[in-house]
Amino acid sequence: MGIKPKVLLTGGRGMVGRNILEHPLAEQFSFLAPTRSELDLRDFLRVRDYVAFHLPEYVIHTAGLVGGIQANMANPVNFLVENVDLGRNVILASRDVGVKNLLNLSSSCMYPRYASNPLTEDLILKGELEPTNEGYALAKIFATRLCEYLHKEDSSLKYKTLVPCNLFGRFDKFDPKHSHLIPAIIHKVHLAKVMQEKKVEIWGDGTARREFMYAGDLADFVLKAILNFDQIPHLMNVGQGFDYCINEYYQAVADVVGWNGLFIHDLTKPVGMQQKLVSIDLQRAWGWQAPTSLKEGITKSYNFYLKSTQ
C-alpha cells in the first residue's frame, strides 16, 4: 500500500470536521486534526511553524466561530474578528510554506440578502449582506477572496472555496444560544415532549425558506473533492437544490420526535433572509448529489442529541 496523502484538517472537533473524520473515505488519507490546545489558529506564527513542520499535501479549512441568529447578533465583533484571523492565518501560513492545495469551506451567508434565488457563485459582493450575521459573512468573504487573490498571483496555488448551504447533523450544537435552526428545533421540540407542553414557539411567521444539508453529506463531497482536486472549480456551491419553509422544518422534527402539539408564531422576532437557496449547477455538472433525505438526517441528528444529553 502506498503512502497516504497527508491532510491538515482545521476544525477537526467541530461538526463538519468530525463528520469528515468518521466518513469511510477518510481512511484513504493521513489526517492531522489538532485541537485548539495543540494548535491555536489565532496565532499566526504557531500556525506557520506547524504547517512547515508537517508539510501536508492538502489543507482543509473548516475551523470557525459559528452560531445561529442569537449568537451572531449578540457577538458581531467576535464573529468578524475571530473568523478573519482563522482564515488569514491558515491560508497565508499554507502559502508561506509552499502548500499547493487548500480547500476553504465558506458559507452561503456571503450572499446578498436581496439576491435572486437560487444563488449563483458570481453574486458574492453584489449587494447588501443580511444584518443578523454580517460580521460572519464578511469574514467568510475575506477568506474566499484571499484564496482567489493568491491563485491569481501564483497559479500553482490551487486554493479553492466550497460554499455549503446550511448544515445540520451529528456533532451539532443544540444549545439555543449557539445553535442553528434544525438543532435548535430538535432541542425545543424534545423538551416540549418531555415536559408535556402543548405549544412550541416559532420566530416569525414560519414562511421564510431555508436549505439544509446533512453534514455527513458535505463530508462525502469534501473527501471526493480532495480525491479529484484538480477537477473542482475554484469557487463552488454545495447544496440540495431545493428548500423548505421554517414551518415545514418544525413539523418534520415534530414527526421524528413524536410530539403532536401546536405551533405558535412570535412575529416580533427576527428571521433573517426570506430565502437562501444556493444554485447547484456546478455541483450537478461535477456529478454529485446529497444522498441523505431530510427525515433521515433529522433522525440521525435526534439520535445523536439523545445520546449526548444522557
Rank of each mutant, 00 (worst) to 15 (best):
N166V: 13
F168G: 14
E134W: 00
K173E: 11
F171H: 15
F174M: 07
I186M: 01
P183T: 08
L191R: 12
P176T: 06
P183K: 08
E197F: 12
V163L: 09
H151Q: 00
E153Q: 07
E153K: 05
L181G: 12
A184W: 07
S156H: 14
A143E: 02
K160F: 11
S179C: 13
F174E: 04
R170W: 03
K140Q: 00
H180W: 03
Y159L: 03
S179E: 02
K173H: 14
A137W: 00
F171L: 05
A184K: 10
K188Q: 15
C147Y: 03
I182V: 15
S179A: 13
V194G: 10
P183N: 09
K177S: 07
K158N: 14
K177F: 10
H178T: 00
Y159N: 02
K193G: 10
Q196W: 06
V163Y: 05
E197R: 01
Q196P: 01
E148Q: 11
K188M: 09
S155Q: 03
G135I: 00
K152G: 15
K160Y: 05
H180N: 12
A192C: 09
N133W: 07
D175Q: 08
H180I: 11
H178D: 04
K140Y: 07
H178S: 08
P164C: 06
T144P: 06
L191P: 01
Y149M: 12
P164R: 04
A139D: 06
A143F: 08
K140N: 00
H151S: 07
E197D: 08
C147I: 03
N133L: 04
